[in-house]
Design a protein around this nucleic acid. Structure first.
Lengths: 345, 345
DNA sequence: AGCGCATACTCAACCGGTAAAGTCCGATTC
DNA sequence: GAATCGGACTTTACCGGTTGAGTATGCGCT
């Protein structure tokens, strides 16, 4: 990539124009003491006139600070596009990065192995100052990699999955339990759950919590299934559940994201089942999508934007040298809407 | 951001280990001629043993190549998350960037002014080798900015909007015309369109095309309205259209994205109107979402992933010095599904 | 033998900044 | 009046690569 921009303005030009040395310009632009107000002003004026901005590349080289953080997302593109979660998460991350004049290096990868290689390469090549790691799974190879590299990272996932890494996480277990209790309180006994990717740590956690909650409430008819988070998989799962004999058919279904819940709504309609009359549906994540359907979707709501922001804030902490820690963000809360109701007698 | 990584290994260490000079290592790693096979192998072996990867920062500094391209997206976060379009576009861009070991610097901005400043700062600070500009509007300030800076960019938008910049675009006018013709062919006379943001160039183009098509087909009942692309706005617009007196109510509605179409579907259901019996709905962009609803949504389908890929490919061309050009990508095609049918007599 | 000429490297300058040490100078201090 | 001091800059040495000029070696050719 060869760039042939307009005659490059460098710190030297600015220094010359202001009648000072490069060092002085550097001091001024980094807001460090040791310059008179007058000189400082002259320098800024000169920079302004020449349209100069410090070359970040050069700056990182000599100061070994990098104002870029990495984020690799590992899901098939088809699904990514659909899940409001990531974009919202990214936008939360951004909101914090921007305050620090920091940028986000984004990459979509196909599997964890690829991500490990990428993160290592980013870090080794000093492209990033740290990374946000998402979608943890059991025995995630990124834990060891980050430790080995001594790379500042924040792991978005339950502490039980992220080893010694600093983590930012939501209490999925409690949220699942609340969801099940709510449906049970409405009178549902046959509650089903359409989960996310089985390989992901939080799916495992939710699955266990669902089982535990069902057991403790004595719900014999509870069942769950894992999917790949896609709407199609959600539709398939729903269809398979709702085609069971009426006495066996779930009267309420919890979904692990909202796109699958929308798909579930579509399937119910296609089968001529009323929501929430014949079956109640409960979504997860609660993007705007849940308010657009008819009926509107009850959901476990989650401040995804804030989640991303907290992850970014925590990363800055790690980069600044704060020791490992665990940062829980608020547990998703139930937002009842039109898709849940007591089962028809 | 101060990083305290494990003892940094640099090109010097590798050179020492391989018993050659820094220059030799550089030659080897850039696959340039002038080294014997044997030396080359020794160098790679040494690098491998030390776990060295060239510091991209240093490399960009001396070679003035930057393996990063920028993308700023300007829409409120709430809407962004929802629109599958961008993530799919990004994934298309990525797929090409990856082949060139290039990364994507992503930023969400609030308005064009902010984007112009950002792009300028990125370019001046040599953070990026070029940029992909999206969401063009009439008299877009980015055109002048890019020219002034001599910055390699590819403009995603109709050539009429992108001035002298190299553009990548879809033929929205033709697509809109096709959509209207299709609905008219089904027998619809009162066709409405729920458009996107009025400030955006392609909205203007689609609006004009819709008008022209309606006129040429002699559809007196055609009407359209602009929104902000959000599902809520889509719902509002739909509600307002469908509450008109039956003799005035549109029998078919075209939406500018799929999220609004989903919202429209919800509104129709809420009002007790059958789709496609009472009203036909036609979405745009056609993400997976359109196949999940009931009825499924007919849509103008678009290979968004490919669109992004083409934009990235074109950007590499621009960076490599190819002159300005116009790169149309395939026109969206109609994919009829369950939400469109002839109007009820 | 002598010359030209690849080939295979080395060397040193340079990219555009930062940072630590050094210089200059006027104001205090004793 | 010499020594001290601190503020305001300047100098210089990097940061970790790339690059072009320079050098040593070997080989073919007359």
């Amino acid at each position: 990539m060869t760039a042939a921009p307009s005659p490059r303005v460098t710190i030297k030009d600015v220094a010359a124009r202001a009648g000072v040395s490069k060092g002085a310009v550097s001091l001024a632009f980094n807001h460090k003491p040791g310059l008179s107000e007058a000189t400082r002003d002259r320098i800024f004026a000169a920079a302004q006139e020449l349209g100069w901005e410090p070359n970040l590349t050069a700056r990182s080289l000599s100061s070994s600070r990098v104002d870029v953080v990495g984020l690799a997302i590992c899901r098939p593109a088809r699904m990514l596009g659909l899940e409001p979660f990531y974009m919202e998460f990214v936008s939360g991350v951004e909101s914090v990065l921007t305050e620090h004049s920091c940028s986000l290096l984004l990459r979509l990868v196909r599997h964890v192995g690829e991500e490990v290689a990428l993160q290592e390469s980013w870090w080794r090549g000093r492209q990033i100052g740290g990374s946000i790691l998402v979608d943890f799974r059991a025995d995630d190879p990124r834990v060891a990699a980050a430790e080995r590299l001594g790379m500042p990272v924040v792991a978005v996932g339950h502490p039980s999955l992220t080893g010694s890494l600093t983590s930012v996480w939501t209490d999925d277990a409690t949220a699942v339990t609340e969801a099940v209790r709510y449906l049970a309180a409405l009178g549902h006994r046959r509650i089903a759950r359409v989960g996310g990717a089985a390989a992901l740590g939080h799916t495992v956690i939710r699955t266990a919590a669902f089982d535990a909650a069902a057991r403790s409430l004595g719900l014999a008819g509870a069942r769950q299934v894992a999917t790949d988070y896609s709407g199609e998989a959600g539709a398939r799962a729903t269809r398979s559940m709702l085609t069971a004999a009426p006495s066996d058919r779930p009267t309420a279904i919890v979904y692990d994201n909202d796109i699958m819940a929308v798909a579930g709504l579509g399937v119910a309609a296609e089968m001529g089942l009323g929501v929430p009359g014949d079956v109640s549906l409960l979504a997860w994540d609660d993007s705007q999508l849940c308010r657009l359907t008819h009926p509107t979707l009850s959901a476990m709501s989650h401040d995804v934007h804030g989640f991303g922001a907290e992850a970014a804030r925590t990363l800055f902490g790690v980069i600044a040298g704060s020791g490992p820690g665990s940062h829980p963000v608020p547990t998703p809360v139930l937002t009842p809407r039109g898709s849940t109701a007591p089962p028809r007698s």
